[in-house]
């Protein structure tokens, strides 16, 4: 996978999530994602950003334009140094939450993108990666 473009900034407060949505939207439009696919990847990124803030105590997000065998995509990587996810299976289940949310963040975001990966080490933090490819 080749990286055409990359941008990293912190996600610590609500305003950062607004900025993230703007950046992801701009890149999604730039690679020609359909309106529905733009909406899906922005929503997924927004959900995960909220997790990074609420559960990971803030972290960094990297937005990349990537390509592989002729197709392009938007890749978003969230990394925090928070407490990590103790029960990954539960965390990926609809309706499961340890906070006050609806428990749709991880499981819902996963459905909105083409590739989704969570790596977490208890006590060290969590890295969530998502990619939406141009169809």
């Amino acid at each position: 996978m080749n990286v055409e473009k990359t941008l990293t900034f912190p996600v610590k407060i609500g305003e950062d999530v607004v900025r993230l949505r703007q950046v992801v939207r701009a890149e999604a439009i730039a690679i020609g994602l359909s309106l529905v696919d733009q909406t899906k990847v922005i929503t997924a990124a927004s959900e995960i950003a909220r997790n990074t803030i609420d559960y990971g105590k803030g972290g960094d997000v990297t937005i990349e334009v990537v390509n592989t065998s002729g197709r392009r995509g938007v890749k978003v990587v969230f990394a925090d140094n928070g407490p990590g996810i103790v029960d990954m299976e539960k965390a990926l289940t609809d309706g499961y939450t340890t906070g006050g949310g609806l428990g749709l963040g991880l499981s819902g975001a996963k459905r909105l993108v083409n590739e989704f990966d969570v790596k977490s080490t208890v006590g060290h933090g969590t890295v969530v990666t998502l990619i939406r490819w141009k169809a």
């Binding site: 309106l35 529905v36 909406t39 899906k40 609806l102 499981s107 819902g108 459905r111 909105l112």
Partner: peptide, 14 residues
């Protein structure tokens, strides 16, 4: 509600 938002909401499970 925009159509793309409606589609996304349903897939999100909201």
């Amino acid at each position: 509600m925009r159509p793309a938002v409606a589609i996304t909401l349903v897939e999100l499970g909201l």
